[in-house]
Design a protein around this nucleic acid. Structure first.
Lengths: 91, 91
DNA sequence: AATCTATTTAGAAATATTTCTAAATAGATT
DNA sequence: AATCTATTTAGAAATATTTCTAAATAGATT
């Protein structure tokens, strides 16, 4: 919810890679886990943090859980960076 | 240097507050430390991380060390967020 | 209803981070 | 040169994070 939580979540490379993977559309927890050399349990832990921070949403279907990207949450971070003096993206 | 380091550095509220404080111009390590209920040693530790990640620069004068903001480093983070689907700041 | 499949939860171990106190540094003043 | 002042560094303690293995859940298939 807060900026610390959002940024902490994005600070981990595994979690950023999960987000990048979801850019191409929803994926099951298993599909996501397959792209890492980590156990499903560990990936599940990262998915939980991403979900808690609002970066992804989950949707159950059969015994699969699909995760998808929720890009609106990035707004707060952008706002903070602008406020602090980051340049405009296209200048 | 990398995105993980930058974001990890920004994930801490003390370090974000230091950055915000420096928006109004350079400050000495002591001035910065005074605004927190932390020892100077602890604030010095945070300043070291901020400097290492390139968010701030230091400048020695007499026995003071002045820290100032270097906003250019925020670019990489903005770029990553845009790439991942954050909305434009002014839309 | 038994079992299979996908995924999460619990708990432990390893590692990293934050904070402190005490000592060190280094330049300025007496 | 002795001392003061601002700040950092070293090392320890407390806390948080990441990962794993093993067990639990819960819906689907047989």
């Amino acid at each position: 919810m807060g900026l610390s939580e959002s940024m902490k979540v994005l600070a981990d490379p595994v979690r950023r890679q999960i987000i990048e993977k979801l850019k191409s559309g929803p994926k099951t927890a298993g599909e996501i886990a397959d792209s890492f050399e980590l156990t499903n349990a560990t990936v599940s832990y990262h998915l939980k943090l991403l979900k808690k921070a609002g970066f992804i949403a989950e949707m159950k279907d059969k015994n699969f859980i699909y995760y998808s990207l929720n890009s609106t949450v990035f707004e707060d971070i952008l706002t903070w960076i602008y406020q602090v003096g980051g340049k405009k993206h296209d200048e």
